[in-house]
Amino acid sequence: MTPLKINDFVRELYATNEFIPLHAPTFCGNEKAYVTQTIDSTFVSSVGKFVDEFETKMEELTGSAKAVATVNGTAALHAALYMAGVRAGDLVITQALTFVATCNAVHHMGAETVFVDVSPTSLGLCPKALDEFLQEHAIQTEQGCIHKQTKQRFQAVVPMHTFGHPVELDELMQVCSKWNIAVVEDAAESLGSYYKGMHTGTFGEFGAVSFNGNKIITTGGGGIVLCKSAEAGAHTKHITTTAKVPHPFEFFHDEAGFNYRMPNLNAALGCAQLEQLELFVKQKRSLAHKYCDFFANSDFKFVVEPEYAQSNYWLNAVICPDKEARDRLLKETNAAGVMTRPIWQLMHRLPMFENAPRGDLSNSEYIESRLVNLPSTPLELI
């Protein structure tokens, strides 16, 4: 399988000789109408009907007790970590194979990231690797799960559903329950993905979703916190809206909060996009099946959803035979106007996280050196 053959296949799929992006937003519904309504109403900032409507629709879609819209996905994850009790000096376990925003949110809490390997099944946090790491480095005390050497508290585990493929949630939740550590799901990429019939982001105490311009639906910039309980949801809404106590005219804030409110203008776009989510997922899954068939008898391995899950296939990915094949594919497709990308550099290779504690990362390193993302905009909608 040569890069030229892959390039020709992608061009045939998209029926164009023009530049093919990795993932472009699609606007084919009520986007303009709803955004115009918002402008006409003058309620373009953090107050307006579309914010409430967007949160309600997300609750209906995911089954979460409360959804709280935020200005972006990193803000959503930051708020979720705060609500899960993460504080300065705590340890938060996540995967090194993730986008930097996952670790940035932990850093902004004043906490320290700990890296554990991913599963080759899901490309997300591996429950077995997590349990082995904790058995070696943690002890249970009255104060919680504590690092044996540093005495720091393991306060949260943050699995990331890579490219929309759900992690092994049953096993992961069992490990975290055994060690009494909160789970905060980084579901930034997995809107429309289900684990055994339940939506991602609803298994942990909190989940965070992103609506950046390259996600399966977009609000331009935006995120949402999915909350396990209505009580936690009410508090999350409170702290993300500056912790202002309702009053006809007085300004009183009863705790230090965040100004993370999603503007009504963005929520209007999101409401229109949500109306088309089912169609987007259907078309993206159809595209993924075409890629899967194309790579079936080659030395490239297309990344498929785990057997237990239904993935949104946010970004299609292929595992190349080796790093040389990966580099050649990236170089030749991009030079030919077909946008492909490697997976992120492992987080411990970045200067701000190079000293973070970590376990064996063999799977992460293997995937990092071989994986390439392929164009993933739904075919029938461009």
Rank of each mutant, 00 (worst) to 15 (best):
V175G: 05
S311I: 07
C145R: 03
A105P: 04
G110M: 03
H161L: 00
F300I: 10
P357C: 08
T241S: 15
I224P: 04
K32A: 14
A24P: 05
F50R: 02
A182D: 04
F19Q: 12
A272K: 02
P342M: 11
V51I: 12
P248M: 13
E55P: 09
N180G: 12
T16E: 09
S229A: 03
E59S: 11
N334M: 07
Q37T: 05
A88H: 09
T240R: 05
L226T: 12
C271A: 07
R326C: 06
H137Y: 15
A105E: 06
I224N: 09
V303K: 07
H107C: 05
P351N: 11
A67Q: 00
Q143M: 06
F9C: 06
R326D: 03
A24C: 05
V372K: 08
D90P: 03
F249G: 05
A156K: 08
P263T: 13
T98N: 10
G164C: 08
G223N: 00
G144Q: 06
M160S: 13
N363L: 07
F54V: 00
M173Y: 00
K290G: 00
A182E: 11
N334G: 05
C320H: 01
T219A: 15
L381R: 10
G197T: 13
F163L: 15
V35S: 07
L134W: 06
P166E: 08
P248T: 14
G204S: 08
V245L: 13
S362A: 14
H253W: 02
D322C: 08
F133G: 12
A325W: 02
G223F: 00
G201L: 12
R341Q: 10
A187M: 00
L269W: 00
L269C: 08
L329T: 07
H147R: 04
F258T: 08
F54D: 03
D254F: 06
A67Y: 01
N30L: 13
V183C: 09
E205V: 12
E305N: 09
L172W: 02
F302P: 04
